[in-house]
Design a binder for these strands. Structure first.
Lengths: 139, 139
DNA sequence: CCGGATTTGTACGTATGTATT
DNA sequence: GAATACATACGTACAAATCCG
């Protein structure tokens, strides 16, 4: 039951409940998700509380939200593999507003900034790649 | 000047202004930052707008905010270097609520999940490490 | 050590704009 | 065009942490 506590905020409690429901397949991948106002009525919470809870699930990549149509449970992403050369450097960070717009990134997606030995810099959306070290046999 | 536009939300405009001020050293590293309500009065904006703008700066790692004391401009972080073995795999993702609590992570910090060849899995806060491929000469 | 002032955190209600169906 | 649904934005209130005299 969601109730006011000192240690757990209402929006965190709601996020926990919804995450549990998603992982138990209560809504199905790619299927609809209750509307914001519907969740307000269902749990007796305010709009801000519901929106903060859903923002958490978005950042965790569990749902995607579109204006006008609502939210859907996300299907797992297929990742491309990127090879990290020896002595090259990888940094994960959040994108700036400009980068998020230019790369058409969804909120909450980190960037991988790979600085190669020869000075080349590669910036990738972290939710679309896996990174592996170069095979010593091949390199 | 910050004004209502269709393409740029007020909180984004404010974040841009504050980011500019920070990068020009208007507040100094480790020094104080205007209080939320002060920014409201300064720019003639509501509390929600100011808080969203500051949330953006927090996610970008430019400021840290503490309840009761306020916000300060962040000093650049010193990163440790982690070697990524050949054929091991790195995934960057956002932490769950449990992980964020267990690892004492600040909001907006991505995790680096490194899966080594031998099955060992290493989970690190992305703002505290740089990752490099293993040197072919040494490996 | 206590108490007040300051500052952020949480939470609700409401209104308007905009995209989708 | 209408209904639905999310995005932005303001105002308000109280709780909790911190700071300072």
């Amino acid at each position: 039951m969601i109730a006011r506590r000192r240690d757990h905020a209402l929006y965190q409690q709601l996020a926990d409940v919804l995450r549990e429901q998603i992982q138990q397949g209560a809504y199905g991948a790619g299927t609809g998700f209750p509307a914001e106002r519907e969740l307000c009525k269902l749990h007796g919470l305010g709009l801000m509380t519901v929106r903060r809870a859903m923002a958490i699930l978005r950042e965790e990549g569990l749902i995607t939200t579109s204006r006008g149509s609502g939210s859907v449970v996300r299907v797992p992403i297929r990742r491309a593999t990127v090879v990290l050369d020896a002595d090259s450097c990888l940094i994960a960070r959040m994108p700036s507003a400009v980068e998020r717009h230019a790369m058409n990134l969804e909120p909450g997606v980190p960037l991988l900034e790979i600085r190669h030995v020869r000075g080349q810099v590669q910036v990738l959306a972290a939710d679309q790649v896996e990174v592996t070290g170069r095979s010593t046999a091949a390199g």
